[in-house]
Amino acid sequence: MLLLFNLALTVLLALGVAVLAGQNLTSLTVHFLMLRSVELPLGLVITLAVGLGLLTVGLGSFLWPGRSFSTTARQLQERVRQLEMQDQPPQ
């Protein structure tokens, strides 16, 4: 079910970017540090930025699979439980 939700969300994002790119045909030059690009349509720049962002997130989750928020939260909750057990006086 989660896979289907992720797929639907990805398709919606792709459609949104495609519509945005199709409606923004104004040419612009991108300046980054000391570099300048040739004139590119704004829609292409937006599409490239979104694509690079998705690629970066995908590679990050592939290279570091254990670094998710839920895993870290569970580990911290377990550590808090251990510390609370140590602080309780013996009965």
Rank of each mutant, 00 (worst) to 15 (best):
M1G: 15
M1I: 04
L2W: 11
L3E: 15
L4Y: 04
F5Y: 14
N6Y: 11
N6I: 05
L7K: 09
L7E: 01
L7H: 07
V11P: 12
V11A: 15
V11H: 08
L12W: 01
V17Y: 01
A18V: 04
V19C: 05
L20T: 12
A21L: 00
A21P: 02
G22W: 05
G22F: 01
Q23G: 07
N24G: 00
N24E: 11
L25G: 09
T26I: 06
T26A: 15
T26M: 10
T26G: 14
L28C: 13
T29K: 13
V30M: 07
H31E: 05
F32G: 01
M34F: 14
M34W: 12
L35Q: 10
R36W: 01
V38P: 09
E39T: 03
E39F: 03
E39W: 12
E39L: 09
E39R: 12
E39I: 00
L40F: 09
L40T: 04
L42W: 04
V45S: 05
I46R: 01
I46Y: 03
T47V: 08
A49I: 02
A49L: 07
A49H: 00
V50F: 10
V50K: 02
V50I: 09
L52G: 05
L55V: 10
T56D: 06
V57T: 03
G58K: 05
G58P: 01
G58S: 13
L59S: 02
L59Y: 07
S61W: 05
F62S: 04
W64A: 13
G66Y: 15
R67I: 07
R67C: 10
R67S: 14
F69Y: 13
S70V: 10
T72W: 13
A73E: 11
A73R: 11
R74A: 13
Q75P: 00
Q75Y: 06
L76Q: 11
L76W: 14
Q77E: 08
E78V: 09
E78I: 09
E78H: 10
R79L: 15
V80W: 07
V80C: 02
R81K: 08
R81S: 07
Q82P: 00
E84H: 03
E84Q: 12
M85H: 11
Q86K: 15
Q86T: 12
D87A: 15
P89N: 10
P90S: 11
P90L: 14
P90N: 10
